[in-house]
Amino acid sequence: MITHRFEARRTARRSVLRVLRMPILLAILTLAGLVAGLIGDGVPDLLAWILLAIPLSVPLVAWTRRHRRNPMKTKEILQ
């Protein structure tokens, strides 16, 4: 049976906590970064940049894992 690739990625129904796990983690990193920068200059600033850079790098990961239109890849999956 031919299954479309993205349907294969469809997971079982997840709990609310599970769905919000990553958003909450990212929110905590963001807020910690925002507050860290307020505490002082120097090391706290560096900490703020690192904490805030983590959520910003997530799209790069998601982009490499995106589902794209690619006949070759679809074939590989079907085989």
Binding site: R5, F6, R9, R10, T11, A12, R13, R14, V19, R21, M22, P23, V58, V61, A62, W63, R65, R66, H67, R68, R69, N70
Partner: peptide
Amino acid sequence: FMRRLAFGTLRLDR
């Protein structure tokens, strides 16, 4: 919306 989708799913193929 995300109940059945993994975090960061970007379905740009559909």
